[in-house]
Design a protein around this nucleic acid. Structure first.
Length: 298
DNA sequence: AACCAGGCTGCGC
DNA sequence: GCGCAGCATGGT
């Protein structure tokens, strides 16, 4: 299966981001490919993505997808790498900002890497609340390895994100044993139950008319604040105007670029995001990417 | 060893 | 509606 690469798409930039520095358990990046396991209608598949000159090549490694399932895998990849967005307007906006213009060349072709599964996106953002990312990835790995299904292939074990029914059946002490705090454990279980009972789903949030109603629908649930809602809407529903305001990484990146000096300069931040109307989430993503560069250059 | 980390809830005004 | 303390749990 192939997907043709659009203009301003760099698979290498995307792979670099996927592999940037953390102990990610939801996929494996090798030299020129990424390998990942997902469910399509409850059936697990393992696939790899690599590229040639013109195309992204998807190869199914485990599982025998029919035509429909193969199309669903391709859709997943297209969504994951956001290949159907034309980045030109974003780059035009970047070029008008002296402090950020370099990003259009430095990160050229980088796509906003998504988390297509809303349940996964919400669990991940809850796990990541107010703890450093190193620890957050550790917590996620423990949970996924304990409760997610696995596929063995070529000497590796690939994990699927646990299904909501599985996490809905957990008790707080089970997650506490993995060093979740009481609150985090409660939140994850609550969200899992909401998904298991169909009170919450990607389709449901998608069906709401505008960003505000989507945010409000998510914030109802305990453990989902405005930061978490915006993060999930940005990574899973690809709402371009969704910005996780107050995000520590975002603030650090803004300060690195001399756009703000202390945490209270909300006016300058608002002004910046106004310049990027329709591309706010891409701006956040590129600012996050700039942090990774700094830490690796050290 | 102190301060920080991709925040949230609950309370007081 | 807004600001702020308190919170939980490791990383550096």
């Amino acid at each position: 299966m192939q997907l043709s690469k659009p203009p301003l798409f760099s698979f290498d930039e995307c792979l670099w981001f996927l592999d940037r520095r953390y102990d990610e358990c939801m996929y494996q990046v090798n030299k020129a490919e990424v390998v990942k396991a997902i469910f399509i209608d409850r059936t697990p598949f393992l696939f790899s993505v690599r590229q040639n000159n013109e195309e992204l090549l998807i190869k199914v490694l485990v599982g025998k997808p029919d035509r429909k399932q193969m199309a669903a895998i391709a859709d997943y990849v297209a969504d994951w790498f956001d290949i159907n967005t034309n980045l030109q307007p974003f780059y035009s906006l970047l070029s008008k900002n002296k402090k950020l213009a370099y990003m259009a060349t430095e990160f050229k072709g980088l796509r906003l890497i998504g988390i297509p599964d809303l349940f996964e996106a919400l669990c991940w953002s809850i796990i990541g609340q107010q703890i450093n990312l190193t620890f957050a990835y550790k917590l996620k790995r423990r949970m996924v390895e304990a409760f997610g299904e696995r596929i063995e292939y070529g000497g590796h074990i690939y994990f699927l994100f646990p299904e909501c029914e599985r996490l809905a059946a957990l008790t707080v002490p089970e997650l506490r044993a993995m060093q979740f705090s009481d609150k985090k454990a409660e939140y994850v279980i609550t969200i899992a139950r909401a998904f298991a009972q169909k009170q919450l789903s990607k389709e449901l949030i998608q069906s709401l008319p505008d960003l505000k109603s989507k945010q409000e629908a998510l914030i109802q649930f305990k453990g989902i604040g405005i930061w978490t809602a915006n993060y999930a809407l940005m990574k899973s529903l690809r709402q371009p105007a969704s910005v996780p305001h107050g995000d520590v990484g975002l603030l650090n990146a803004l300060s690195n670029h001399g756009i703000k000096k202390d945490r209270s300069e909300t006016v300058k931040i608002e002004r910046l995001f106004k310049q990027f109307k329709g591309w706010e989430s891409y701006l956040v993503f590129y600012l996050w990417r700039s942090l990774a560069v700094r830490e690796i250059n050290h």
